[in-house]
Design a protein around this nucleic acid. Structure first.
Lengths: 349, 349
DNA sequence: ACTTGGTTGGCCCGAAAACGTCCCACGTAA
DNA sequence: TTACGTGGGACGTTTTCGGGCCAACCAAGT
């Protein structure tokens, strides 16, 4: 059932909106039992004229009957609303969550794909696909896109296609090597994405840094300095979100640091920064590239994550809050919403 | 799946058409493999500009890719078309049958409601409902509507409603008593319909006739003559279609006539006339009211029938062919289409 | 009997979207 | 080279959409 709507959505992108709108109208009529155009319009927040267009359609379809005192659902309409109820619920469960999360964190856009990446690998692919779509939409001429590493981003890179080569675009790693395995490194992903869409790319081949001195001396290197500057000109950054300890382990962080992370309540990781439950930065990997300041001022920050297991992490990164677009799956979304619910509960008491 | 599509058809009738249009375009692109806007437009019979609007959308959705040599389906588009295939079939299977039957018999409109009256009584209700809708649409001011008897028509009468009273309309029986039980008689149905929509009605209380003499002498009666004339002024006739022998039995036709019907290959019955497989009239009930000539010249002839068991009968009456609107259910439609298929088969050989 | 507050359905008009049509630079095949 | 078909752009026209208003009507309350 969901599939059929997914399919239709591709051909009729605004199908869902219309469906929802019409359902709302019918629903409202049902509640009001007998209601006139004007009151209905104001209670739905639409102008009289557009509402009228809809009700005229409903009349034509025999879903409502209009008397001199107002309109009411016909029996067919009643039945339809009943049938719709369950569909709309399922349909807009995700949309509702999207809206809720979007509003709560003040994001520009939230996208939830059905499924749970923890369970089904297909969902991860969908996640990547959705991310590609978003990225394609926000990318303009000459844009520089910075990407991080991680399995989700790698998946996204694999899904990436473009109809016309984006010769004027650049892909760069958001930060230098962060100790991940080659295939999940930002460098790998940036170059892969660039190749797949016919864009250009520049890489930042630096090791993880252990000391400020190393940082300073590397930044003295003209060509390194130059590329870091280039990266900082990025208008768009795409990053994954990870569980702090899973990430630390993957990056083979030494035990001492892990302990300190644990002590600080680290929960999530994104672009080399570790966050605690409340979105505070509790640790950062020392490397070159984008710093938090730049990310905070970036025009488009796209975060991608999937799986119920990452829900908490996503929530904490969102709490830090510089993202503009969030792309997650249903599994993660459910967890996040549950956390929000809990927060509201405690607020009330 | 079926249900959700039905709902959409009611709530988003225009979107379904768009869906079909877009599917057709994508399908055509798929067949052409690589094709330009103009050639595609002509092969689809649309102007270049509207096609362009569609293809632009497809591009935005990533369903097609455009090269300098033309457009082709992207892999996503390919997949979508595949998935759509079944949806469109389901969605427009009935539509296709409607169109096929409409064209084959040169009808003005064919309406197929999902389901089979033989199996589910709900379908019969839908049939009645659909008939009401059609009738409401074709009825104008001062129109006289002649109706026949039968269980389907009775069902229709029960479904009949109108938003505004049709004070200037008349309902009349198409023909005099044809030996049916009271509740299925044309008189009963005409009066019931009239009452339900606030219209007027006149009845024709005459028994079945046994002889020409009786016919002649009854027609001498001024008031009978007058009402028959009135009936013949009808612009619209709504009639059911029945299986010849079921009908004969219900009307308690004597054995001799039944035998003669069987000998003549009678198959179907409508408004008191019996038809054989090829749509020839093989027998007629002697009564007053509309004659075949009048029906043939009537502006709107609406035939209603439901159930696979009536498929053959409907086919033979259609073959006689004076209907303008046909309202059947899926069960009957399937049978009819099967007959048409068989006919085409034999034509080919 | 008369006001009041609501209804529907009709109408008008400016804005915006859709559309028909032509043109252009370009790639490609002959 | 030529000839053709392509996608993309542009532009004036047509059609639709949407906002707003109004007449006729109705029911209820005064």
């Amino acid at each position: 059932m969901r599939k059929i709507l997914e399919i239709q959505k591709q051909l009729l992108p605004d199908l869902m909106e219309i469906l929802k709108k019409r359902y709302n109208i019918l629903h409202q009529i049902k509640l009001s039992e007998l209601v006139g155009r004007r009151t209905l319009a104001t209670s739905l927040g639409m102008t009289e004229r557009v509402l009228r267009a809809e009700t005229d359609l409903f009349k034509e379809q025999g879903l409502i009957e209009s008397e001199s005192a107002g309109m009411r659902l016909s029996s067919a309409g009643e039945k339809l609303v009943e049938d719709l109820e369950s569909i709309v619920k399922e349909l807009f469960g995700l949309t509702n969550m999207e809206e809720r999360i979007r509003e709560h964190f003040g994001l520009q856009q939230v996208l939830i794909v059905p499924g749970d990446s923890d369970v089904s690998p297909m969902t991860k692919r969908d996640l990547g696909l959705a991310a590609c779509k978003v990225l394609r939409k926000v990318m303009g001429k000459d844009d520089v896109v910075a990407v991080t590493g991680g399995s989700t981003l790698a998946q996204m890179a694999e899904q990436m296609t473009s109809m016309s080569p984006m010769k004027t675009n650049w892909f760069v790693p958001a930060r230098g090597g962060l100790g991940e395995s080659l295939e999940y490194q930002a460098n790998t992903i940036a170059s892969m994405m660039a190749k797949r869409v016919g864009a250009q790319y520049r890489l930042l081949h630096v090791p993880d840094l252990l000391s400020d001195e190393a940082y300073q001396s590397l930044m003295q290197e003209p060509n390194i300095h130059e590329i870091v500057e280039f990266i900082r000109r990025a208008r768009i950054v795409v990053h994954g979100i990870g569980d702090a300890f899973a990430m630390a382990k993957r990056r083979r962080v030494d035990q001492q640091t892990v302990d300190s992370l644990r002590q600080d309540g680290a929960l999530a990781e994104a672009f080399g920064y570790y966050f605690d439950r409340n979105g505070n930065v509790v640790h950062k990997m020392l490397s070159l590239g984008l710093r938090l300041e730049e990310i905070q001022q970036m025009q488009v920050v796209i975060a991608i994550a999937g799986g119920a297991s990452k829900g908490e992490a996503v929530h904490s990164v969102l709490k830090f809050g510089r993202e503009t677009v969030l792309i997650i799956d249903e599994g993660a979304a459910n967890v996040i919403v549950k956390i929000l619910d809990a927060e509201e509960q405690t607020e009330v008491h």
